[in-house]
Design a protein around this nucleic acid. Structure first.
Lengths: 198, 198
DNA sequence: ATTGGCATGTAATTAGTTACATGATTTT
DNA sequence: AAAATCATGTAACTAATTACATGCCAAT
């Protein structure tokens, strides 16, 4: 006995991983491992998921009839792969989701800001050290984005029929990453300078 | 019978809400409602929590011996308040947490970027409309940060003995918010322009 | 020999979200 | 009269994280 909840009335769920998986499967059939790898190269920069979550969500999507899977036997004692394909229902669920615009903003969750907020009670030098370490990490991330410029998403590009149309949007997300890291580094530099003046 | 988990060996937990509550209680005794209100005015911009989570976490902190509570009877049929105070253990848990620096970066989770990433299949105009709506929201948020400049956190400031020292750090988090929204708006504007050129 | 990549899953726990509940007082 | 704010909690559910679990193949 399950009660009627909000979600029974609201068709559009914002469980992102679901739509990331459907979105990738829209380009062609993929295994859980493929999806995990693709996400790591692309969407993980703005939506991370563990492999455990990917495999369980794929099974759930199959229960819902949005995808079907087939176990591909790789001869010679190699491990079998389970390959997923979008169904028509899956394709229309994806279309429905992308057709319904977001009306809210995402809530920012920044652990470091919590720590900075409550840093009044500690030695300013400790805060500065922590911010410097964060600066190194964010510089690394920015370098990564800059190196990712053209050559990334190759396995995906091969499968995508009209790749040029998609590429504009992929570049937009990459550009966000670059701007975000630049902004972050600038803020860290100014914060370090200001705290050192104390 | 509970098994030993990772957390038994790793003293430093990154359950932020816990430390936000301890951090505020370090300034003086507060009720769940006070904490909810304080968070809404300040930390919610980088760490949101529902009141249901705040009340249950306070009870958990009391079980752990990090805070103690007392029910204050408000005469004249008014509702009673339950007021929490830090214990010495709570104070040292907070000190330990702030003393141990973060070594990783926070994973970004941006719903909108997921939608942009998979926007190749929809009418560019629909994407532009969605980005424009988001622009309005982010402009609102930036305006809010700009208005928040000096007068905010008044109830907290009154309780804080050495407020000037804290204020530098509070301003740093507010400054992050401003830069974040400016970056976001700039990215939205450029993205809108680029998609309109298609 | 051991690390890393390929390949797939389940179990257990913790955290976050939505819904359910109540009831007073103050402001519009 | 209705809405907003004060004030506190529990229940149910969904999502995210960590740990457990296995085993091949290729390269160093």
């Amino acid at each position: 006995m399950s009660l009627l909840t909000y979600q029974h009335f609201c068709l559009i769920l914002y469980f992102m991983l679901k739509y990331i998986l459907l979105g990738f499967l829209n380009y062609g059939e993929l295994s859980g491992y493929d999806l995990k790898s693709l996400m790591e190269e692309s969407t993980s920069h703005f939506w991370h998921a563990y492999h455990s979550q990917i495999y369980t969500t794929l099974r759930k999507l199959e229960d819902e009839g949005l995808v079907i899977s087939e176990e591909i036997e790789a001869g010679d004692a190699k491990l079998n792969r389970r390959v997923y394909t979008l169904t028509d229902e899956g394709r229309s669920a994806l279309r429905e989701w992308i057709g319904e615009p977001m009306r809210e903003m995402v809530q920012v969750k920044e652990d470091l800001l919590v720590r900075v907020f409550f840093s009044g009670s500690r030695d300013p030098q400790a805060t500065v050290d922590e911010l410097r370490a964060q600066r190194r990490l964010h510089q690394q991330q920015l370098d990564l984005y800059n190196n990712l410029a053209s050559g990334h998403l190759n396995p995906l590009v091969e499968r995508t029929p009209d790749m040029a149309r998609e590429a504009v949007y992929w570049q937009r997300t990459l550009d966000f990453g670059r701007r975000y890291e630049q902004m972050y580094i600038g803020w860290l530099d100014d914060s370090i300078a200001e705290i050192e003046r104390l």
